[in-house]
Every structure is written in structure tokens, then in C-alpha cells.
Simulated scan of single mutants.
Amino acid sequence: MQIPFSFRLSAFTFLTAFVFIMVCSSCWMNPNTQTPGQSYLQGEWQQDSVPGQKQLLTYSLYHFRFTCDSFFVSIKSFSKVNYGADSCMKGGHWTEYTRGHYEQRNDTLFLKGQFCNLDYTIKEDPGCFRIGVYEEFFKVTKKTDSLVQLSSTTGVIPIDARLIKRNTCHIKPL
């Protein structure tokens, strides 16, 4: 049995239209300016201590800077256990840096960026510490205007960060 030509043509037309619609709907232009981010986060936030830090073998303290939709984080780590060469760990104290873009949906803060050098240039040499993509998700609880609690999805110790400097977002072109 042979399929009529008109049926083959309409099936081809339908398939072509379907592929065209899928391609067009999956693409969009990225904005040519940064987005304003969350107004309550704009500024620098410091974690001063960790509950029970004297009893912990390893812990980290965070310093966040949010500018529009960008973030910069320094992570100061402290350890009583020697994880590597002392030239890297400096007697159990070291700092790592990250930068990137953040987004908040409902109560979840999504940070995605790269590990960086001290001057926030992209880190290319692994050296002693982590390199490549930094991705972290936090549940955010705003305690006061100058205190937020960030609960990591990968850790058990919440980060209580206090505002040390407020700034406002001045949107810049990308």
C-alpha cells in the first residue's frame, strides 16, 4: 500500500513546523545589562564565628560581597588536621576566593561562579586549592535588616552573616 502524496507532504510540513517552533522557542537574547539582584543583599556580609568552633576540627568563615547580581566570596578555612603541604595550609589557615552570578528564587539563593585568585581574577593554576566551578545553594533566612542566616545544602553549619557595609546597585552594561 502506498501513502498518498498529499499525506506525506502534510506530515513533512507538520514536522518542519514543529522543529522550527522548538528551535525558536528554545533561544532568547541574553540581557545586555546586569540585573539589579536582591536589594536586601546589596553590600558586604561577614560571618564572625561558627557555633562550637573551638571543638570543631575544621570550619570556615565567609565574607560575602553582593553587587547587583554579582557575588564575591572569601572563604577562610581553619583546620586542626593537616590536609596537605604546610606551604599551602599555612599551619591550618588558608583562604579561597570565588566570584560569579547569583539568583534568588523563593527562599533559595543560588551562587554560581569560579574559584579565583586574591584579586578575583579567574584561577587557572590549581596550586594547592580548589579550581574551576563554584556552585552553592543556600536557604536564606532574613533575621533582621543587618543579619541573614544562610543554610548550605551541602553543609550542616549555618552561616550567620552580619551586614558590615551597605551599598546600592548601579546597573552596568555587560
Score class of each variant (00 low, 15 high):
P158L: 03
I122H: 02
P126V: 00
Y83S: 08
P158R: 03
E44T: 10
H63N: 14
F72T: 03
K139E: 13
F64H: 13
C116R: 05
N167H: 07
G155S: 15
T58V: 14
P36Y: 01
Q46W: 11
G84M: 10
Y102Q: 04
V19I: 13
R8I: 02
G91N: 14
I122R: 08
V133T: 11
F66C: 05
G84D: 10
Y120G: 01
R162E: 05
M89G: 13
L56S: 12
G127S: 09
F66K: 04
L118Y: 10
P31N: 09
R99A: 09
D48S: 14
Q2R: 06
F14T: 11
G155D: 15
R166P: 00
H93Y: 10
P173F: 06
Y59M: 05
I171G: 03
I171Y: 01
Y59T: 07
G132R: 02
K139L: 09
E44M: 05
D48I: 08
C128R: 07
S10A: 09
Y134D: 05
C116F: 02
E136V: 03
D69S: 07
W94E: 04
G100W: 01
I157R: 15
M89W: 14
N106Y: 10
T58N: 14
R65D: 06
F138H: 09
A161F: 04
Q46M: 11
Q46P: 03
K112E: 12
R130C: 02
N117D: 08
I159V: 14
R162F: 04
F66G: 06
G132L: 01
E136I: 03
K165W: 02
K123S: 07
G127I: 02
I159H: 15
S74H: 05
F20V: 10
V19K: 07
Q149E: 15
Q42L: 00
I131N: 13
D160T: 08
L147A: 06
E135I: 07
I171S: 04
H170I: 08
T168M: 06
C169S: 01
N167M: 06
F20H: 05
P173D: 09
T13I: 13
L163V: 01
M89R: 12
E124L: 06
Q55G: 12
T33Y: 13
I159Y: 14
S151N: 14
C88T: 01
V19W: 06
Y120L: 01
K112P: 05
I157D: 15
D107H: 09
T153A: 15
S79C: 01
G127K: 11
R130P: 06
C24S: 11
T141H: 15
S87V: 11
F12E: 08
F7T: 07
C27I: 14
T58Q: 12
G84Y: 08
Q53F: 07
H170W: 03
A17I: 12
Q46S: 09
